[in-house]
Amino acid sequence: MRRVLLCGVLLVASCGWAGADDGAQERLPGAPTGVTAEAGSATSVHVMWNTVASDPAVAGYEVYRGRTKVRDVPASAHMVDVTGLRPSTAYVFTVRARDAEGRLGPGSREVRTTTPATVAADRSPPTRPGRTTGRAVGSRAVQLSWARSADDRAVLSYDVYQGSVKIHSVGGGQTATVVTGLRPGTRYAFTVRARDAADNVSPAGATVRLTTAPGTDDGRDTAPGDFRASTHRADGAYHLDLSWVPPRVDGVVTEYGIELDGRPATSLVWGGTAPRGRASYSFYVGRDPGVDHRVRVRARLPDGTWGAFSTERTVTTGPAGR
């Protein structure tokens, strides 16, 4: 069931198979690589991995704590926060890729981390990271570095943001990282925040603005696919009915911008699990029949930038536009 908050932003509450023969085994997804696990607080761990290229394509990932599956993640994601953990406890995580038929590939290598102890009555955030710098590394990655933050206990992790979107996290002992999965020829703005064991977060460090090198990706793959639009009449008013297929990108798409008649109309944000398949949305456009409307949609990508617009559709309110 959907709940809608109409305040400029819409919030929707809905991120060992044995084949018949050796050929089938070869088509299983491979083991995820680059898996890391960093404690994000006394009760959470941030797990990241590299996306798995597979034919047929990967449909999702399963994250395991020991032998227990703790999270299902859509194919577009390569990071997740595992919450509800115990303080001062050692954990082991692995990740497996799953294909569209539910078959699992081999597990990744095991990664280990220990959550810190709970800190009583700690309400003091770390200081902001200092001297944040960076450089583009080719067309799809950037390297960032910063000076350590201070905390009355200890800094547990650093979170990297692109705009307002958290896209990366590293341990409190690190003061540099490489952010991958970016788009060629695109300008980005990064900030870094420090976090302690009590989940107190520092102010953002200085913004680092970088442009990735040009590449062959013209951005069209970031547009929502198979975009459809129609209208219906209810309670004396006309509503626009939209549906589309989310773009396949590195990460989870949870926000879309809808443009109506050449102007931004609304933002659609999934507060729970974003659709893995076709997404849909309906909104009010007025009471007059026979009005033409042009509409298109685009996704806010996991790297914090807006993707390309979908194909523009024109619909007419009234009997011909039902």
Rank of each mutant, 00 (worst) to 15 (best):
L5K: 13
L5I: 14
R109N: 11
G236L: 08
R263K: 15
A213V: 08
P302R: 00
G171P: 02
S282E: 12
V111H: 00
P319E: 11
Q162N: 14
L11D: 12
D72C: 05
V208K: 00
V165W: 03
S282H: 04
V35Q: 03
A53L: 14
D159N: 09
A154V: 12
T113L: 10
Y158T: 09
T222Q: 03
L268I: 10
H293A: 12
Y256P: 03
D218Y: 00
R65A: 15
T133Y: 07
A77G: 13
N50M: 08
T180G: 11
T212R: 03
R322M: 14
G171F: 06
V9C: 13
Y91C: 07
R195D: 00
H232E: 11
A42E: 09
A213F: 02
V291C: 01
T94I: 07
R98M: 15
S54R: 03
D122F: 06
R140A: 14
T94D: 01
Y61I: 06
V285Q: 00
D292F: 10
V295G: 01
A141T: 05
G134D: 08
R98N: 05
A100L: 10
D152C: 10
G304N: 06
A75W: 02
G225F: 06
P29S: 09
R27Q: 15
A308K: 02
F93A: 06
R187W: 03
L242N: 00
P116N: 09
D235M: 10
G272E: 14
S124M: 13
G19W: 00
V82G: 01
A24K: 07
A204Q: 05
P32I: 05
R148L: 10
V252P: 04
W146G: 06
R294Q: 13
R153L: 04
T216F: 09
S145C: 08
D151T: 06
R2D: 15
R298Y: 11
F190K: 01
G138F: 06
A141R: 09
F190D: 02
V137G: 03
G205Y: 02
W244Y: 08
T177M: 08
G171Y: 01
S108M: 04
L182I: 08
R193D: 07
R228S: 12
G84M: 08
L301D: 04
R233W: 01
D55C: 05
P224A: 10
A20C: 09
